[in-house]
């Protein structure tokens, strides 16, 4: 699924001024705790979260997250938007709550990318 379709399905608002939405997304994961994100999300996933401080962007970078969706129309502080802009990570705000947003994407056929990092990434070598 293209990121642009996700934006459309979630009635989302893109907060970056210049960003490429025509990228292919493999799946998604949702979490409100940074360590949860780092522990469970697979690379190249969309992250749905209720948090909107700049740490969300940093965490996303560490976990190779492809795009961040902020649920329930959260408007992040300027620092968050600025960081997302600088690091070219798409930042999207949706009016839906976490449960509904996840439901919409799951129903649309988006894969779950919430598998423990340890499975293939960390213990593997």
């Amino acid at each position: 699924m293209k990121l642009s379709e996700i934006v459309q399905k979630l009635n989302g608002k893109v907060l970056n001024s210049k960003i490429n939405l025509e990228i292919e997304v493999n799946g998604a994961g949702a979490a409100d705790l940074m360590s949860d994100v780092l522990a469970s999300i697979q690379p190249q996933a969309v992250l749905l979260t209720g948090l909107c401080n700049p740490q969300v962007v940093r965490t996303a970078m560490m976990a190779d997250v492809l795009a961040i969706v902020l649920v329930r129309s959260k408007m992040p502080p300027v620092e968050t938007v600025q960081l997302a802009e600088n690091e070219s990570i798409p930042l999207i705000s949706t009016p839906y709550g976490m449960f509904e947003a996840c439901g919409i994407l799951y129903e649309a056929g988006l894969n779950c990318l919430e598998r423990p990092v340890s499975d293939q990434d960390c213990f593997a070598s």
Binding site: S35, D36, A39, Q55, T59, V117
Partner: peptide
């Protein structure tokens, strides 16, 4: 409230390093 404090940080580290 900032999203930290899951108590998973050190566990994550142990998974990522040898």
């Amino acid at each position: 409230e900032l999203g930290f404090g899951a108590g998973m940080g050190l566990v994550n580290i142990s998974r990522c390093v040898d």
